[in-house]
Design a binder for these strands. Structure first.
Lengths: 205, 205, 205, 205
DNA sequence: CATGAATGAGTGTTCATTCAT
DNA sequence: CATGAATGAACACTCATTCAT
C-alpha cells in the first residue's frame, strides 16, 4: 500500500527534524509510523533513501506549485509575490512542513557528497529539483531586471540567496518555537510582513 | 603546547564542515591534524567537546569584536553597519571561517538538547554567547526604532532573522563555491552589496 | 526467548570465571553463547549488567533455599547444618556453580563502588541479597548463643567469616582442580567433613 | 635508587588494593608514588610486573619468617601457633599489609594463566613461593597427625584450606572496615581468638 | 505482507607503553 | 636519570540492515 509509504515519510519527517539524521534511528521512525523496522526496507532502500525521498517530494511539490501559479504570470513582481505566497503556503501550513524545512537544510550539503551507488539516481533528481527551484527565482529576478522592474545593481543570484536565507531562518524560528515552546518574538504574520519587505528591497525606485 | 590544541580545532573545523558531525571521525580529525587519535583526548573531553570548543571560540570572537567596535558607537545605523562589517571580517576572512559558519549552523540545534554532564558548562557558555549575539542585533534594531532611525513597522526580532539568515546563506554559498569549485554567480563584493541593501531596507524613509 | 538470556548468563559465568572481568570480552562471551555480540545488548544493558545479573540470581537462589529449608527449622544446630548442606548443594552441583563462586568473590568489592546510574537498582538488590545472606548466618549464630547451644566466647560475625572463608577457599580449590586438572589433595567428601568439623567447633562443650 | 622501587611498590599496593588491577592505572600509581609514569618502566617491565613483584616480596617475607621462626620448632602445635602469629604480624601490621592480602587474592588466579614471556621467570618464583607456603602448612598438619597431636580424620590439605580461607576472609573484613569505614562487627582481637579456635579444631581430643 | 530477532561492521574512547627531550 | 607528551592497539557498544518465521 502506498499509504504505508506515506506513513513512513510522515514519521521520518518528524523524527528527522527533531533528532537530526545522525540521532534519528530507523527503529524510532518505525515506532512513530506504527510498524516494524523491517517493513521500512520494503518501501525504501535504506535510511538515507527515506530522507532523500522526503526531500525530493518536498522540492517537487514546491516546483509544481510554482509551475502552476508562478510560470503562468507575466509581471515579475507578481511572480515574485506569488512565489513567496507559495512558500508560505507550503512551509507554514502545518508542523510537518516546518519539519521539512529543517530536514532539507540539514541534508542538502550531504546529498552533494553522497556516494551510495544505489541512490545516485535519486540524488540527481534532488539536485535537479533544487536547481530548478533556484533557477525559478533567479529567472524571476533576471526578468524583473531586464524589464526594469527590479533594481539592476544587485545580481539575481545574490538576491535569491538573501530571500531564501531570510525565508529559511524565519521558518526555522517558527519551527523552534513550535517544538521547544520558547518564545522567539514574532509570529507568522510578522514573518510575512518581513518577507514582503525583503522583496520590496529589490524593486527599482 | 597550545599549538596542538589549535591544530586540532583547525583540523576539526575542516573535517566537521566537510563531513558533518556524524560522518566526521576522530581518527580523520587526528590525521588531518597530523597526530594520533589518543592525543585529541588530552586536549578535549570527547568528540562533542571538540565541536563545542570550536563554536564557543567562534561566538566569543564575534561578541568580542562587537563589544569593541559596535558597543562604543552611538548611531544605530553606524552600529548596524559596523556589525555587518565585523561579520564580513570574520566570516569571509579565510576558508576556516567559512567552515565555522557551517559547523555552527549544523550544531546549534543539537547543543540545546545536549545531555552530557561534563559538557553542560560549555553548553551553557555557548548558549549564553549565542543569546548575547542575538541580543546585540536586537538591541541595535530596537534602539534604532526608538530613535526613529529604523522603520518601526517590523519587529526587531524578525529583522534580525532576515539579516542573519541572509548573511548565513550568502556565506554558505561562498563556502560551497570554495570547496566544490562550482560557480554560484556572485563573489564577496556582490555579497557585501546585497547585505548593505538589506540593512538599508530597515531605514525609515 | 528467555533461553537466550540463560545461555548468555551461562557463557558469561564460564568466561568471567576463567578470565576475570577485565580480560573477559563481550565478543568471547558471545562466541561461547553461540551468538553475536550485539544480541547480548538486547538482554543486558552492558558488560557489567551481565555480571551483576549473574550474581544476583546466584544470591537469590541461595537466599531462597535458605528461606525454604533453614528458616523453618528451630534448632540452631540444625539450621547451621542445613545451611551448609544448601551451600554444598548449590556450590558443588556443577562446574557452573564453582565458577559463580569465583565470579562473586571477584565482583563484590567492585559492586560496592559501582557508579553506573542505570545499574544502581541491580546494585542495591545485590547488596541487599548479600546482606540478607550474611544476616542469615549471623542470626543462626546469635540464636545458637542465646539458646546456649553455641559457644558464646566468639562473636557471631567472626564465626560467620571463618565459616564463609573456609567454604569459599575449599570451593575455590575444587574449581581450580576442575579447570586446571591439577591435584589439590582433597575431594568433595573431604570438603564436607572439614566444614562439618568447623561447625562443630562452634558448639558449646 | 632502590628507594624509588620501593616507593612504586608501596604506591601500587595501595592503588591496586583500592581499585583492583583492572581499574588501577599506571598513571595513578605514578602519581601516588610521586613520580612520572615513565620512571615506573625503569624499574619494572610493565604493569603486571609491578603486581607480581609486590606479591613475590610478600610471599618471600612470609616464607622467610616461617623459616626463621617456624622451621626451628619441633612441636607441631607450637609450629602452627607460631605460623598464625607470623601471619597476624604480617597481615595486620599496617594498612599496607591489609592491602597486600587483597591484591594477592585477586591476582593469584590470573598469575597461573599468565602468558607474558618476559614474566615467566617471576611467575615461576611466585608459584614456587606459594607452593612453599602451602607446603609449610601442610607439613605442619601432616607432622601433627603423624605424631598423634592433630586429628587424623581430616586431610592436611583441607585443614590448610580451612585455615587459610578463614584467615583471608577475616583479614579482608578488616581491610574493608579500614577503607570504607563501615562496621563489620569484630576487631583484631576477635579475629585472633577466632583463628586460635580454628586451630584448636585440629587438635586430637 | 509483516515482524523483530539477530547480525556484525564501524567508531569513540581508554590507557599501557615508548621515547625525544 | 627523569619526564610526560605521544602513540595506537584493543574493546564496549550502537544501530542499519537482513531474513527466517
Amino acid at each position: 500500500m502506498d499509504d504505508k509509504r506515506q506513513r513512513i515519510l510522515d514519521a521520518a519527517t518528524k523524527v528527522l527534524a527533531e533528532k537530526g539524521f545522525e540521532y534519528a534511528t530507523i527503529s524510532e521512525i518505525a515506532r512513530e509510523a506504527g510498524m516494524s523496522t523491517g517493513l521500512i526496507y520494503s518501501y525504501f532502500k535504506n535510511k538515507m533513501d527515506v530522507q532523500l525521498s522526503l526531500i525530493l517530494i518536498f522540492l517537487q511539490t514546491i516546483n509544481e506549485m510554482n509551475s502552476q501559479r508562478v510560470a503562468v504570470l507575466r509581471n515579475p513582481f507578481d511572480k515574485l509575490y506569488t512565489f513567496l505566497h507559495n512558500c508560505e503556503d507550503l512551509l507554514l501550513k502545518d508542523d510537518s512542513s516546518l519539519c521539512r524545512v529543517k530536514v532539507l537544510h540539514e541534508a542538502l550539503p550531504h546529498i552533494i557528497g553522497l556516494k551510495d551507488k544505489g541512490l545516485m539516481q535519486k540524488r540527481a533528481e534532488i539536485l535537479a529539483a533544487n536547481n530548478y527551484l533556484i533557477a525559478t527565482i533567479d529567472e524571476i529576478m533576471l526578468k524583473g531586471q531586464q524589464e526594469g522592474v527590479f533594481d539592476s545593481t544587485l545580481k539575481p543570484t545574490v538576491m535569491r540567496q538573501v530571500l531564501s536565507g531570510a525565508i529559511e531562518r524565519i521558518v526555522y524560528g517558527l519551527f523552534f518555537k513550535r517544538f521547544t515552546g520558547e518564545e522567539i518574538g514574532y509570529d507568522k504574520q510578522d514573518a510575512h510582513d518581513a518577507l514582503v519587505r525583503v522583496i520590496e528591497t529589490f524593486i527599482k525606485k
